[in-house]
Nucleic acid binder design. Sequence first.
DNA 1: TCAAAAGTGTTATGATTACACCCATGA
DNA 2: TCATGGGTGTAATCATAACACTTTTGA
Lengths: 249, 249
Amino acid sequence: MPDKPSNVKKEVKKVFEKESGKIVEHTVMNSITIDCVVFGFDKGSLEVLLVEHAEGISKGKWALPGGWIKEDEHIDGAAQRLLRELTGLNNIYLEQLKAFGDPNRFPLGRVITIGYYALVKREDYNVKAGFTASDAKWFKIKDVPDLIYDHNDIFAFSLKNLRNKVRQAPIGFNLLPEKFTLLQLMQLYEEILNVEMDKPNFRRKFLKMKLLVDINEKQKDVSHRAAKLYNFDSEIYKKLTDKGFNFEF
Amino acid sequence: MPDKPSNVKKEVKKVFEKESGKIVEHTVMNSITIDCVVFGFDKGSLEVLLVEHAEGISKGKWALPGGWIKEDEHIDGAAQRLLRELTGLNNIYLEQLKAFGDPNRFPLGRVITIGYYALVKREDYNVKAGFTASDAKWFKIKDVPDLIYDHNDIFAFSLKNLRNKVRQAPIGFNLLPEKFTLLQLMQLYEEILNVEMDKPNFRRKFLKMKLLVDINEKQKDVSHRAAKLYNFDSEIYKKLTDKGFNFEF
DNA sequence: TCAAAAGTGTTATGATTACACCCATGA
DNA sequence: TCATGGGTGTAATCATAACACTTTTGA
């Protein structure tokens, strides 16, 4: 491999192309890929979007969605593009995790991958389901199967990262519908952090932060007292953070 | 550039070689480098280690120390190796920041860099000063000059990261001598976080965590009441974290 | 004895926790 | 009327912050 690097890299691309079913363009970078952990929240469960490899040595195995970086493209832009190609969604909440660089992570050559994680609203995703790869599927995070290469490591890292981040900044809203109740919000936190919370205390704590906008609407068609619906206002969040505001959960 | 990628990459390496004064081996990866932000703490000031480029278009400009990744080397190992080459130190506290991938970050071709940050004890560094590059120098973080490429961005990110991390885990000890006083510890936090703290309250808060070992020694030759010296015990830290211990500053 | 830092004590305030309790609504 | 979740009240406990004060040491 070290003797004929460019040939090996062509070979790697060919194999990757076969396995992922994606065409590798000639203007992409060698030896670097992007892999995305896409989180969703549905019926109280945190889920992750995986794709199935159709051909090659990884046939039938599940993987994180990913792809190559174009020569003239920012890596963040590449991740956005790959997600758009997969989900049809623009402007997804997206952050880089880190680079994964075990020399043996990819069995057919030296490829470093840059991990990203994304948070999507399932309501948006469902609307544009027609755009999604036919072999893409949501898995509850407890049911994530064996993935190819080091994708289980990347997933584990992303989950740790999400748990950290959600206690530092209000990113959880990216997983909820536009309008939500305080209980939905609490259940999201409970699910992500894997803890049980006290409803009255959660209410007060969150409302005291003044991050939520009471939109004067209520739930409909529920067989119990209808709850108030709230919006998250990122403008308010910005103002509060500028003033030295501390989230922390 | 997109037409003859391998030629361009050879050219990039040649230029890099000239500028950095480092020999680029034939077995390194194309288009990916590593850059390290090395922090030290001296006389109450947080400092960062920079190197001066001797030749090429960046002649006379300061930069973060960095280099190439070998084909068969883990990226974390590459960062450790580069730091060893620079400082003569092994087992440095080192963590990856993230990948930096603006397509225009490097003016002579497409190169993505993976940023790392390291914390070193200045006492160790001084002992092995003979190993250091002659053109390496410590800068107070307020006096960091204009750096080449996107290195100021990488530095700014690393500082934000350090400030975050130091409040979540006791990594600050990596910047202090083996034996230190509570006041030194507090001043380290004050300098990193850029805040003023209350001495009595800091004492109690830190001692309550049970992270410090009283080694029954005292300062000598100080013109005031001698303070107790402490050790940080990472074993204790592990036990406490296993039990669900929360740092947070 | 003075300056400088070490180290202790005390009190007010506010956040967190645990839990009892009432309210509204559809089945 | 009952189950289900919505929503309020309250008291005990704990953490934090502010600051007054005593102790030790070398110059």
